[in-house]
């Protein structure tokens, strides 16, 4: 069951472009980032708050789950909602002082908060086991994964990739989240968020407590961050501080902008395109070392971000009249 294939450090040799194991793990990665960026979409695309600390919520979610399950013997399924609540708690702690700041200060404050979380994870060895990270929190998940696998085998597909159940669950979570967020966005509650994005003062003058709504929006982002953290942890089978670099948040922004702002389905489009292209590059035979290819991938990411912001500030598939970053 324990396949060492990890999405972030793929060290498997791919004989064919059609390798199903490989694309399953790419699919999990794309789904993780779709979940991750759904909350960013609510923040950036619908509330106009620039949360640069999303990876911090992912770290809190993953670590809380792992610590509760592996160190304190809490039931895995119970640890999930508790971890989400802890992530939301952190969202409130970070948001309460910083959400009333100017947008640029808020961006810097959130990235600093996320980095502080990572550094604590790296150094508080008693709690997090430091750079070695935490293992052994996924037994309950593994048995569920096995039953899903058996079920699929019973349906007649015999060589199911071992990560396929996680792939399914990830995308079910992503789709449920996106449908749910899209629906909630169409309610009067969601309308207030959009009003705040457009003009906070106008919303306040009409009797809306803008601060409270921004805090709620951040709490939603914390929730999706934590969920993405669970998927990441189950995928890697361990939780280490190094997975929670600020880079992850920035990739989330690339996903968001590729898919377009102010549309929840955009994060699916963005995530699938980004990861298909980035991972598909592995099949391009380049006379370069591993490190150079890895560097090249991120350089491309940088160019994409620069190009999008220079020429399409609403995102590649965004509607210009609904949400534009440039003004």
């Amino acid at each position: 069951m324990s396949d060492p294939l990890s999405a972030f450090h793929l060290a498997v040799s791919f004989s064919a472009f059609t390798d199903i194991d490989f694309w399953t793990s790419v699919g999990i990665l794309a789904g993780t980032y779709a979940i991750f960026a759904t909350g960013l979409q609510m923040n950036v695309g619908f509330t106009g708050i620039f949360n640069f600390g999303q990876v911090g919520f992912m770290a809190i979610g993953a670590y809380s789950m792992a610590i509760l399950t592996a160190e304190h013997g809490v039931n895995f399924w119970l640890s999930l909602p508790i971890s989400i609540l802890i992530a939301i708690g952190f969202g409130l702690i970070i948001g309460l002082p910083s959400l009333r700041l100017r947008a640029d200060y808020f961006a810097i404050a959130t990235i600093a908060a996320a980095e502080a979380i990572r550094l604590v994870a790296l150094n508080a060895r008693d709690l997090t086991n430091g750079p070695q990270g935490i293992f052994g929190f996924d037994n309950s998940w593994n048995s569920v994964s096995d039953s899903i696998e058996e079920f699929i085998v019973d349906l007649g597909w015999t060589d199911v990739p071992s990560l396929f159940p996680l792939f399914l669950v990830t995308w079910v979570v992503a789709i449920v989240l996106i449908v749910g967020f899209s629906r909630i966005q169409r309610t009067p509650w969601g309308r207030v968020l959009r009003a705040i994005r457009e003009d906070e003062d106008a919303a306040r003058a009409l009797g809306k407590n803008a601060f409270s709504y921004k805090l709620q929006s951040l709490a939603f982002a914390a929730t999706t961050g934590a969920l993405a953290g669970f998927v990441l942890a189950l995928n890697l089978k361990f939780v280490v501080p190094d997975e929670f670099q600020p880079l992850v948040t920035f990739i989330g922004y690339v996903v968001l902008l590729l898919g377009g702002l102010a549309n929840y389905w955009g994060v699916v489009v963005g995530s699938v395109i980004l990861w298909t292209v980035l991972e598909g590059m592995r099949f391009v035979e380049l006379p370069l070392s591993e490190t150079k290819i890895a560097a090249l991938r991120f350089m491309i990411l940088g160019v994409v971000l620069i190009g999008l912001m220079a020429f399409r500030p609403q995102g590649a598939f965004g509607k210009r009249e609904e949400m534009v970053l440039g003004d």
Binding site: P188, A195, D201, A202, A203, L206
Partner: peptide, 29 residues
């Protein structure tokens, strides 16, 4: 927002139409 809820509501010198929302949503908000 509390003052507005008491029934004391203002408009702005420089209009604050919520541009990226339809007119009807501006009103219903």
């Amino acid at each position: 927002y509390m003052i507005a809820r008491l029934g004391m509501v203002r408009t702005f010198q420089i209009t604050k139409a919520l541009s990226a929302m339809p007119v009807i949503d501006n009103m219903m908000l």
